[in-house]
Amino acid sequence: MSAVDRILDKRLRGERLDLEDGVRLFESDEIEKLGHAANIMMQRVHPDPITTFVIGRNVNYTNVCDTFCTFCAFYRIPGSSEGYLLPDEVIFQKIKETEDVGGTEILMQGGTNPNLPFNYYTDLLRNIKLRFPNITMHSFSPAEIRKMQEVSGLSLEQVVRELREAGLDSLPGGGAEILDDRIRKQISRHKGTWRDWMDVMQMAHKVGLNTSATMVIGFGETMEERALHMLRIRDAQDQCIENKYDSKGFLAFIPFTFQPDNTGLKRERETPEAYLKTVAIGRLMLDNVPHLQSSWVTMGPEVGKLSLSYGCNDFGSTMMEENVVSSAGAVHKVNINSILELIREAGKIPAQRNTRYDILKVFKDGTQVERDFVMQN
């Protein structure tokens, strides 16, 4: 039995993988074998042949940013003539358009704009909830929350609690990149350490907010740094569970590849095979994070569809609007009908979910059906 076979057998027996196991899997070129094991583990957690998706919209409220990440093609420095801040009424209109097509989630993110006071965010959230009480605000990355803490002078806990009271429902995992300080110092020196990112997430869990976690490969990180990224997410999830917070912690893990076009960081694109390997290893190592989300926005619909047999159980968001990775050359777009078709082509039954991963609608044989046969995740 090869080393990879022994590691996969270990996981299929229900044992946890360690850092050395993760490194060995990342070094392996047996991608189909990893995908097969990951698919088995996915089916143990999600036995019904369901692939979920959420109807949502990205609202990038500002592109003004003083973090200056070398890999970002979206931001503009403070004072730039190309910088913008969306008027509240424009944001409200975007949310209305989302609700009009059955959308439930708004992923509102922007740059770390030093010109915005903390009450800008709390007032905006309150006004959104006043107008759209049923919309889920899955918004603001840890870097943005750190900027709110800086401009307000409040503690991290005060900032997160006040955001929640104002209407924040869930925290997205943006800005994780690679959770290791060596690579972060190279690509995003001003964004902070991996602990800065994780402390925000763990504070969100403490105050009762669910979150997601991302991972971006292709910055020149080592295989050990990739595996360590996953273990740090797993450890934080363990702590959330052990502390019995009023939160489910990280609901989803979303890996994707660095998009280099129009950025100051010139690197070769990672291959679809490297992405699929990362997806599979994520399912194998992150045994306490229930959902693994496909990243069709960066990889394209066909690779996204293939990821559904490598451990993913979710197809992500319809992404009615997206400006960040598209600025860096990722221009893949699909509509709701295309998502339904792609999921069916993968041999799965599509189902619309909300941000909490509650299933809202199941689509079977071209029609919406009741979800009585679906196990609630």
Rank of each mutant, 00 (worst) to 15 (best):
Q149R: 15
L292F: 11
S80E: 04
R6N: 11
I233K: 04
L154M: 15
Q109V: 09
I339P: 08
G110T: 02
L179W: 07
N288W: 02
L209A: 03
C69D: 02
R24W: 00
A328M: 13
H46C: 03
S295F: 01
R283F: 06
E157I: 13
R356N: 14
N113P: 07
F118E: 09
Y275A: 07
L19W: 11
G175P: 01
V324N: 02
A3Q: 15
I31A: 04
D100Y: 07
G174Q: 05
T214L: 13
G83I: 11
A176F: 01
G102K: 11
R44L: 10
R126Q: 14
Q43Y: 04
N354G: 08
L231H: 15
L25M: 15
D196T: 10
T51S: 14
M285H: 09
D287F: 06
R13W: 04
N323C: 02
R76I: 02
A37I: 07
C69S: 13
E322P: 05
R356G: 10
H205W: 03
G304D: 13
V54P: 01
N60F: 05
G175T: 03
L276V: 12
K305R: 15
V90C: 00
Q186S: 10
I254S: 01
N335Y: 07
D235G: 04
V64M: 11
L34C: 01
E157R: 14
G110L: 04
S141W: 01
A351R: 01
V331M: 08
T70G: 14
F74Q: 12
S81I: 00
E30P: 02
R356K: 14
F256A: 08
E99Q: 15
V369R: 11
R76W: 05
D100P: 01
I40Q: 12
F74T: 12
E221Q: 03
D246L: 10
M108V: 07
F256W: 15
C69E: 05
Q259F: 02
T104M: 09
S295K: 04
D48K: 15
H46P: 05
V334E: 04
E302Y: 07
A143V: 14
N210Y: 02
G366C: 13
L342N: 10
L340S: 06
F92Y: 14
C240Y: 05
F26L: 06
I349T: 15
V325H: 00
V4E: 14
E273L: 14
T222D: 03
L12V: 10
Y120T: 11
L156G: 09
L276C: 04
V45A: 12
K277P: 07
I128G: 00
Q352A: 10
I359G: 10
G110K: 03
S294V: 14
P114M: 03
G192F: 03
I183K: 06
L308M: 14
V331W: 09
S326E: 11
A274F: 08
I281H: 04
H36E: 15
G83E: 00
L116Q: 12
M201Y: 06
G304K: 06
D235C: 00
I343S: 13
L130V: 08
Q239A: 07
D196G: 07
S307K: 11
T51H: 07
M285Y: 05
A204I: 00
A346F: 10
R131N: 10
Q109N: 09
T193D: 06
